[in-house]
Amino acid sequence: MEYIIIIIAAIFVNNIVLAQFLGICPFLGVSSKVSTSVGMSGAVLFVMTIATIASYLLHQYILIPLGLDYLRTITFILVIAALVQMVEIILKKVSPPLYKALGVFLPLITTNCAVLGVAILAIGLEDGSLLKAVIFAIANSIGFALAIIVFASIREQLELANIPEGMKGVPINLLVAGLLSLAFLGFTGLV
């Protein structure tokens, strides 16, 4: 039951993009087509889960015993950067089709604040365990996927719409994101 609450809270109530503003860069940057946003979501799911596991273990078994908690930010970002490189190399060798689908998105993920953000949030969970952190990471990446795919579908429709000159480009996208966020606000109080 506890896990179901974490999942619903992360996907709908505290949606990582629309309520917590993490991962806005890819959300606005690679959402012009549904297909690219699906690819990005896959890459985020993959990296976010592995990064959270790695940083959770690192924090629990190395940083805390040594009293180096304040080095959290530096170690996590290095772990994530190294991990992204490693995942890229391994995928290229082991599963070329998967690499082909996710390859271009992987380098972008290092600077995706959602990955670092979830890794930091996951170690702060109440009576945390590795399983809880993993579920939290997966649920958040599903939340990211939901937000970016819905947003990309709306943007594809916007291509055909007649938009006032001054609103073209960034402003109309932000406005759409605002309305989407307003819709997600409706889930408040669900858990």
């Binding site: 629309l18 309520a19 917590q20 503003f21 001054g166 609103m167 960034v170 402003p171 109309i172 932000l174 406005l175 994101a177 605002g178 309305l179 966020s181 307003l182 606000l185």
Partner: peptide, 22 residues
């Protein structure tokens, strides 16, 4: 109150960037 909730951030920034461009 909408403007201090998350959606307000997107909406306010959208109109501010229109204004800034102008």
């Amino acid at each position: 109150i909408l403007f201090i909730l998350p959606p307000g951030a997107f909406i306010a920034l959208a109109y501010l960037s229109v204004l800034f461009n102008k």
